[in-house]
């Protein structure tokens, strides 16, 4: 049952194991370095922060699974835009939440649709297309607010962002619900099953009559909608809006997916592993922040740890950490000498 639930390939499993070990390791390190790190309250805070990263990473996961160099650099900008627009529309009124929510999700979906059109019909590489749309969405937020974002979340939204039910932050519940729903979409719907096949081999998918275009378009639209949703949630968390509140998620959402063990070439990966990845990244971040070492050193340590994790993981994932791997590294380090006079 559990196996089919977290269904995935062997590499994904190895990644999940690796992620769990890493998670435990990080908590232990945090506990050793920072007093009160492993208190329930602090861990809950870290979990809520992880949910904020996890939400946009869900859309990112779908897009990366869709393959063909698929990546969505507009998630952060859509989050910012959604947050700013929602704040202004809601402006503290609970009854405005629903219509504003619908409007904002539609807006996110529209940005995703434009992404998809550029990528599928005009053959623009996803990296560049979504980057361009990120610029446009950022600019749109600027123009919309005239540089001065206003408005605020309402009490309902605040409750979602910062409240808690029987001691459990609502955000964590939102994260768990999002995990379950998106994993079900991925593994139990025709869309999800076809998405994996499209990401694995587009021409074979076409030969099997899978509507490749529709799947790709749906994926980017979905990612846009999810990012807009994440922006709304972010508004609930921050209560007032900032202009580029979402920009930090542009690249970290990709890092979360990759640290979770999803390769960027498409087809493989799952939502569960992305959740792990988001958790790992948030943990690293919180540990580094709690060290109070100044923002430069913070970024440095952050990057170095990420690099280390990726290397260790990259070597382990390919199952290649073995005597043969060491021999291989040694052999290719030595190659330039033996290959004299044969340079291409």
């Amino acid at each position: 049952m559990v196996r089919s639930w977290l269904e995935g390939s062997r590499e994904t499993w190895r990644a999940v194991g690796f992620g769990l070990i890493l998670l435990i390791l990080l908590v232990v390190v945090g506990r050793l370095l920072i007093p009160g790190f492993s208190s329930v309250r602090n861990l809950m805070t870290i979990l809520t922060l992880a949910v904020l990263l996890f939400l946009p990473s869900i859309g990112q996961t779908f897009v990366i699974i869709s393959g063909g160099g698929g990546v969505d650099l507009s998630v952060g900008a859509i989050m910012s835009l959604a947050e700013v627009v929602a704040a202004q529309l809601i402006d503290g009124h609970n009854r405005a939440v629903l219509p504003a929510g619908v409007f904002v999700l539609a807006l996110g979906g529209l940005v995703g649709l434009i992404n998809a059109v550029g990528i599928w019909y005009l053959d623009i590489p996803p990296l560049v297309m979504t980057l361009g749309m990120a610029g446009i969405a950022d600019g749109a937020a600027l123009v919309y607010t005239n540089g001065v974002p206003g408005g605020a979340a309402s009490s309902v939204l605040q409750f979602i962002g910062t409240g808690s039910v029987v001691g459990v932050p609502v955000l964590i519940l939102v994260g768990v619900a999002a995990l379950i729903v998106s994993q079900l979409i991925l593994s139990r719907t025709g869309y999800g099953r076809m998405l994996r096949l499209v990401g694995t081999n587009r021409s074979s998918a076409q030969a099997a009559r899978i509507p490749v275009g529709a799947i790709i378009i749906a994926t980017y639209v979905l990612s846009g909608i999810i990012s807009a949703f994440a922006g709304m949630i972010l508004l609930g968390y921050t209560m007032t809006s900032y202009l580029d509140a979402g920009s930090q998620y542009q690249l970290t959402s990709i890092a979360a997916v990759v640290v979770g063990g999803t390769p960027l070439l498409g087809g493989d990966g799952g939502i569960g592993s992305t959740a792990l990845g988001a958790l790992v990244i948030t943990l690293i971040n919180s540990i580094v922040v709690s060290l109070h070492i100044g923002s430069g050193a913070q970024e440095l340590v952050d990057g170095a740890i990420l690099l280390l994790v990726l290397v260790v993981y990259g070597v382990f994932r390919s199952g290649s950490f073995s005597a043969q791997w060491i021999r291989g590294v040694w052999a290719s380090l030595r190659l330039p000498k033996t290959a004299k006079g044969e340079s291409p």
Binding site: Y191, R193, M194, L197, N201, I210
Partner: peptide, 23 residues
Amino acid sequence: FYRRSLTDNLFAQAYAMQGMFSW
């Protein structure tokens, strides 16, 4: 479809027949 299961390889066209919104 390399890297995918026998089930997925067998059912690829069946998924397409049932459509995106099927369970």
